[in-house]
């Protein structure tokens, strides 16, 4: 009975993943792909990102006019949400995941587009930035989480939270009310005021709320924001980074996922 239930759960998880962010068969980029990508883009994305991808769509004009986040300018901006090193472009899979999941509180999930349509849109928006032709983004290697967190591990994570000055932006208790945030010192890449993430509310985390999502965010940083990459500090010390991840998750009473 127990095994049967496990099997059922496993099927649900796998099906869910396949339906959400797994890499579908990516069409070759050719004129037809771009034509179709453009058609879909202009129907679904241009409202915020603008016909020419310059973040100047009719809704984009209002969104983020006075504070971050603005819609992405596909010609100029870097990318916050990636699996690659700081300063690198996202992988195609990163873009696919982002379009599929959306960004909580900012951009809707576009599961209504079928996977081929999502790939076509990705091909089209990449065509605006020649850096995609020149650079070959490589995702960082993210290890599997070790065994479940212990009280000691979470305590160690708290020490790292203090040591790495996370509290300066995110606050002592992770509520996004650190001294730099409350003083209004935080700015994004367009010099717009930006808030520190409230770590007690995972539903608003733009880069995902699972332990792996947090681990990835700490490794990559969020380009275009003051959130730096900690990849250099934790290279070869991944165990310590997991402790920090578990501590951050504990701030919201979240169990490891």
């Amino acid at each position: 009975m127990h095994a049967k239930r496990l099997k059922y759960v496993a099927i649900l998880i796998i099906t869910g993943l396949c339906a959400s962010t797994a890499q579908a068969v990516k069409p070759t980029t050719n004129r037809d792909t771009l034509t179709e990508g453009r058609r879909i883009y202009e129907q679904t994305c241009a409202w915020c990102h603008g016909i020419g991808g310059e973040a100047d769509g009719p809704a984009g004009w209002f969104i983020g006019r006075y504070s971050s986040p603005r819609p992405r300018n596909f010609l100029k901006d870097g990318y916050k949400l990636r699996s690659t090193a700081s300063g690198d472009l996202p992988t195609d899979q990163d873009l696919f995941t982002l379009i599929t999941r959306g960004i909580p509180g900012v951009m809707p999930a576009y599961r209504a587009l079928n996977e081929q349509e999502r790939w076509q849109v990705i091909a089209y928006l990449k065509s605006w930035n020649p850096a995609f032709e020149e650079e070959k983004p490589v995702p960082l290697t993210l290890p599997q989480a070790p065994s479940a967190p212990t009280e000691t591990a979470i305590h160690n994570g708290r020490n790292l939270y203090v040591k790495y000055d996370c509290r300066v932006c995110h606050g002592d208790n992770g509520e996004g009310d650190g001294p730099e945030a409350t003083a209004g010192h935080l700015r994004d890449g367009n010099n717009l005021p930006i808030r520190a993430t409230n770590l007690t509310d995972p539903s608003a985390w733009k880069n995902g709320a699972s332990a792996h999502d947090l681990f990835r965010t700490l490794m990559t940083g969020l380009d275009g924001t003051p959130m730096p990459s900690y990849a250099n500090e934790f290279a070869g010390r991944e165990e310590a980074l997991w402790e920090l991840v578990w501590y951050i998750q504990s701030l919201s009473g979240q169990q490891r996922k």
């Binding site: 100029k76 700081s86 994004d188 890449g189 367009n190 380009d223 250099n232």
Partner: peptide, 9 residues
């Protein structure tokens, strides 16, 4: 401009 080259702790 708005594009990050690197942002590291």
């Amino acid at each position: 401009g708005p594009r990050t080259l690197v942002n590291v702790a």
